[in-house]
């Protein structure tokens, strides 16, 4: 297994960097070209969420992203140090994107889309998704199949 690890300060400007790194490693790992846009979007949503969690909590903890090329699968883990009360997996189970969207114009909904929306977008994109929270951190794991073998990362 070949691995690339990225640790970045929780500021929004670095989310783009994380996306670019993930895209480059996914391409090298042999993820199909037509899936790369999904990788880019899903990784961006996961990192945006983590940055959002850290900025709400304050502190200096970096966001961790680990990219692994493991035979026929490419996996991305994004780990935050969130200790928010919300249960991300529960949020994911509860949110219905189409329902949220159809209510998007109601006056009682704030301008920004609800927390959990980004996570729900990931679930709409990535078939193999796992969200695990242990109270001290949340780990979002996304896996894509690889089709080409080009050796390790």
């Amino acid at each position: 297994m070949a691995t690339v690890k990225v640790s970045f300060t929780a500021v929004t400007a670095h989310v783009r960097t994380a996306r670019l790194v993930a895209l480059a490693v996914a391409r090298r790992a042999g993820v199909a070209e037509e899936m790369l846009d999904e990788v880019r979007l899903a990784v961006g949503e996961a990192c945006s969420r983590a940055v959002g969690v850290h900025s709400q909590l304050g502190g200096e903890h970096p966001v961790m992203m680990q990219l692994s090329d493991d035979r026929d699968r490419f996996s991305v883990e994004v780990v935050d140090r969130g200790t928010l009360d919300e249960d991300p997996a529960g949020v994911l189970a509860d949110i219905d994107l189409h329902e949220v969207s159809s209510r998007a114009l109601d006056d009682d909904i704030p301008e920004t889309l609800p927390s959990g929306f980004g996570l729900a977008v990931i679930s709409g994109l990535v078939e193999d998704l796992d969200v695990a929270s242990d109270g001290a951190s949340t780990r979002v794991t996304m896996v894509w199949p690889t089709t080409l073998r080009r050796g390790g990362i």
């Binding site: 979007l41 961006g44 945006s48 998007a104 114009l105 889309l113 929306f117 980004g118």
Partner: peptide, 19 residues
């Protein structure tokens, strides 16, 4: 060439403002 859920939120906000 890239649009995420934050961007969608801004567009929804814009739509609500003009409406």
């Amino acid at each position: 060439d890239f649009l995420d859920s934050t961007g969608l939120g801004v567009l929804v906000g814009g739509l609500k403002r003009v409406r």
